[in-house]
Design a protein around this nucleic acid. Structure first.
Length: 554
RNA sequence: GCGCCUGUAGCUCAGUUGGAUAGAGCAACGGACUUCUAAUCCGUAGGCCGCAGGUUCGAAUCCUGCCAGGCGUACCA
């Protein structure tokens, strides 16, 4: 509808110029926005103001001229007005709004979808928690954001693949093996020191017991280093299986699980380093090898191979991201915790060094989750074994509530997750407010079915009865859904969907309390049923993008 | 010190990429269930959009400088 009005204005301006009433034929960038207040109509354009400089005319005068030549379809636009400094306000006829409902019913589950991605292959990598312990609440936020972003992009015409990167190589995995092995020895009654840098959680003891039970012979027959390596391998596999299960119960599945170790095994890391060395982007200094990331805007160069000959995490990360491009992705999105933001510049550098464009790689930095208990912060540390797992939260708060809660603010903003609040006040959670709309509508249509009333057949006569302010307001909101999704895709911001749904839910609940859907007047009832069925479609589509269910009953 | 992010109602946060009178949810107060699900609704109250300049028809939004907070600033991941 906005687009339609925009074209009307452009045509009018050109026509006015032909008739000599406007000096210039240039059309400056201008906008058509929804009016905030009904007094200003349904849409407003700032064309006259932005054109003032080029036309050397007063904005209100330009507005007058444009309106004079506006070839407005009278079935569409009821009237136009000039207001304030030169806004052109458009008042849309209800009949024009009614057409939206038909479009929603026709599109169904696809209402809100678009092809702005035009089939581009895009990869979203998220969670990627180290396999050294179960997922905790903090990971939950990244999981909710990543999955939702993937949903939204896919709905917007991108070809999306979701990937989990497993850091199954390097020091922390060795530490894991050591922790498990030491707990195993302790369980045999051998006295051992348990160093501070080892993982102290109870889950380590469980792993040790399990691995000990199954691999006792093997562990006894090899030396300590091999035993640790064996423990590491088995424990990591076990933990990954657990993580996969936790994510499943959070409603999240990945298209691909990518192993860091596989990059070493296939020689990809070495190959990439050699390649960069040929390009003279890697140089030796102080006994280590450095990547010249400063050539691409990083503040200092970064080590890829340490003095002791071991590669850094960054080295395998370079190989990993280049490998992503080799797999044919046009764009890469990484979802990271905000505490990793120091990493952005160097990874962007390696993307550019490999001949790709800077904007083909973006990082979503999700701010920290502050876990609170009775309003007081809870310290969390995987190493110390002090954390509340994601699974615990899902069990106590519920999957839908948890996912919705994680998406109730921009990821740029830190999130307080009060356990007691989330557990105790489940009824106050906004997710129920939105889901309740879906359940209510289902309940009404169920009753209508019994009365033999049709809810999904288009009846122009009935729909034309939808003239109340509340009804038009709801239709306007429904009309805004597709652009909300697109905007959310462009900015990779799922919380826009969340806020949109809360607004739509508010409009519906308010309407419900004021007007009776199953009115005595059968024709009116049919019109209203057609309307609320459209609301149901949009609520369902929106919740689906967030990974939240739309219940038939509550 | 430098870099990134954040400062909006008592609290937690939105704010349609620069638009008209800045919005929600909690919390507070007062109302609405013989009627489609009260997990709901209606009303009242609450503001120097951190501060100071600048850009222009117009700024919470863009620029500069301060102030406050968070995170980062490894041959850790």
């Amino acid at each position: 509808m906005k687009h339609k009005i925009k074209t009307l204005i452009q045509k009018a301006a050109l026509k006015a110029h032909e008739q000599g009433e406007l000096r210039s034929s240039t059309i400056p960038p201008f906008s058509v926005e929804e009016s905030k207040s009904d007094i200003h109509g349904d849409f407003a354009s700032n064309f006259a103001m932005t054109a003032a400089a080029a036309q050397k005319m007063a904005p209100r005068k330009i507005a007058e001229t444009v309106i004079k030549y506006l070839d407005a379809d009278r079935a569409f636009i009821a009237k136009t007005e000039i207001a304030g400094p030169g806004f052109i306000n458009f008042f849309i006829r209800p009949a024009a709004w009614h057409l939206i409902l038909n479009a929603i019913h026709t599109a169904g589950t696809q209402y809100g979808a678009s092809d702005i991605g035009s089939g581009q292959k895009i990869q979203v990598e998220f969670v990627s928690a180290n396999p050294t312990g179960p997922l905790h609440v903090g990971h939950g936020r990244g999981a909710a954001v990543g999955d939702s972003v993937a949903n939204i992009l896919s709905f917007s015409g991108y070809q999306v693949e979701k990937e989990y990167y497993i850091n199954d190589s390097g020091r922390q995995i060795n530490t894991l093996g050591k922790s498990v092995f030491l707990r195993y020895l302790a369980s045999l009654g051998k006295k051992t020191d348990f160093p501070d840098d080892c993982y102290k959680g109870d889950y380590i003891k469980d792993l040790a017991a399990e691995i000990g039970l199954r691999e006792a012979d093997q562990l006894a027959s090899v030396d300590e280093q091999e035993a640790i390596a064996l423990c590491a391998r088995l424990a990591a596999a076990k933990i990954i299986a657990g993580i996969r299960q936790d994510l499943n119960s959070f409603g999240i599945t990945f298209d691909n699980w990518f192993s860091e170790q596989s990059l070493y095994d296939s020689g990809k890391v070495d190959a990439v380093l050699q390649n960069l060395r040929k390009q003279e982007l890697i140089y030796p200094k102080d006994g280590a090898l450095w990547f010249k990331t400063t050539a691409f805007g990083d503040e200092k160069d970064r080590v890829v191979v340490r003095k002791n000959g071991l590669t850094t995490y960054f080295a395998s990360d370079i190989a990993y991201h280049l490998n992503k491009f080799e797999r044919g992705f046009d764009r890469l999105i990484d979802v990271w915790g905000a505490d990793h933001h120091g990493y952005c510049a160097r990874l962007t550098a390696c993307v550019e060094a490999s001949g790709h464009k800077r904007d083909q790689f973006s990082v979503i930095l999700v701010k920290l989750v502050n876990l609170l208990r009775k309003g007081k912060p809870v310290a969390m540390s995987t190493r110390a074994g002090e954390f509340v797992t994601l699974q615990e939260v899902i069990d106590e708060v519920g999957r839908d509530a948890a996912r919705f809660l994680f998406l109730t603010r921009s990821y740029d903003s830190p999130l307080d997750f009060d356990l007691d609040l989330a557990k105790r006040q489940t009824n106050d959670n906004p997710v129920y407010y939105v889901q309740y709309v879906h359940a209510r509508i289902t309940s009404i249509t169920r009753k209508a079915d019994k009365q033999g009333l049709k809810t999904t057949d288009l009846n122009h006569q009935a729909v034309s009865r939808l003239t109340s302010g509340e009804e038009i307001r709801i239709i306007k909101l429904l009309a805004r859904f597709p652009e909300t999704v697109q905007h959310s895709a462009e900015t990779m911001a799922p919380h826009r969907i969340t806020f949109y749904l809360m607004e739509l839910a508010a409009a519906f609940h308010s309407y419900y309390n004021k007007h009776r859907v199953l009115a005595d007047d059968t024709e009116l009832a049919c019109g209203r049923l057609y309307l609320i069925a459209a609301v149901k479609i949009v609520i369902r589509n929106g919740l689906a993008l967030l990974g939240v269910s739309a219940p038939e009953k509550m």
